[in-house]
Structure formats: C-alpha cells, structure tokens
C-alpha cells in the first residue's frame, strides 16, 4: 500500500477518529499514515453493529408483546449474549434464559436485578423497562 492509496473515505463508524496505517512513501520506506477510514471497514463494522441492533430491536418488540422480559432486550442492547452475560454475572446460562420469561422476571429479587444491572451498567429501574 502506497501513501496515496491509504483510504480517506470518512468511515462513519470511526466517528471522526483517524487510525494509524502503515504505507509506503516515495522513498520506499513504510511509515505511519493517518487514515480517515476505508469503506470496507465501515461495511463490516456496520454489519456487526446492525446485527446487534437487530437483536435488540427484535427483543424490544417481543417485550412489548409480552413474549420476553426486558432483561433480554438490555442484554442485546449492551452488545452481550447469554454466554457472556453468564460469565459476567456468574449465573448459569439456563437460569438467565429462564429470567427471559416475563412472569419469572417480574418476581426477581432486587439482589438478582442489581447483579444484572451491575453487569450492564444499569440501575434496577432502567433494567425493568424498555425505552
């Protein structure tokens, strides 16, 4: 990659940041060139973010329909999945999945709610509702 080939396509996922890339100058030496982003990176990052947002939105619809608990929505919103949430909270995966049932979620103790809230950086009140 030459200096003038370093993409400067204003990748929106970088939010104005620039990243350091290695490219070849006219003297043949490699050096760091700041890049405003490459569309390829934007496509793959956007793909991952969109997929996570899709999961969160899907969960939100199901919360409104009463098919799942707000916990599942917040888990996806925090870009987590069940195995990760299980590692963070120290709870079994099947237990977390059980807490996706609205009737069971409503009966959870404050202590468990705090544990989930802690894991995702939310207060108990935030955890209980979807926005």
């Amino acid at each position: 990659m030459l200096d003038n080939e370093v993409p400067q396509e204003g990748n929106s996922t970088l939010a104005g940041h620039r990243k350091a890339m290695y490219a070849r100058g006219t003297d043949g030496k490699l050096h760091i060139v700041q890049s405003a982003g490459w569309e390829v990176e934007e496509i793959v990052t956007r793909q991952a973010v969109d997929d996570l947002n899709r999961l969160a939105e899907d969960a939100r619809q199901r919360v409104i329909a009463g098919q799942t608990s707000a916990l599942e929505y917040h888990m996806h919103k925090a870009r987590m999945d069940v195995p990760l949430l299980s590692q963070v909270t120290g709870l079994w995966q099947w237990r977390i999945r059980r807490h996706f049932r609205p009737d069971i979620f409503h009966r959870l103790s404050d202590e468990l709610l705090r544990c989930y809230g802690e894991a995702m950086g939310l207060s108990i009140e935030q955890l209980k509702k979807v926005d």
């Binding site: 929106s12 996922t13 970088l14 939010a15 104005g16 940041h17 990052t45 956007r46 991952a48 973010v49 870009r79 987590m80 990760l84």
Partner: peptide
C-alpha cells in the same frame, strides 16, 4: 472510543 467500535 467511537460508539460503533465498542465491542466486548
């Protein structure tokens, strides 16, 4: 960090 790059 830029929001879109904040993964676990």
């Amino acid at each position: 960090m830029p929001e879109d790059l904040r993964f676990h």
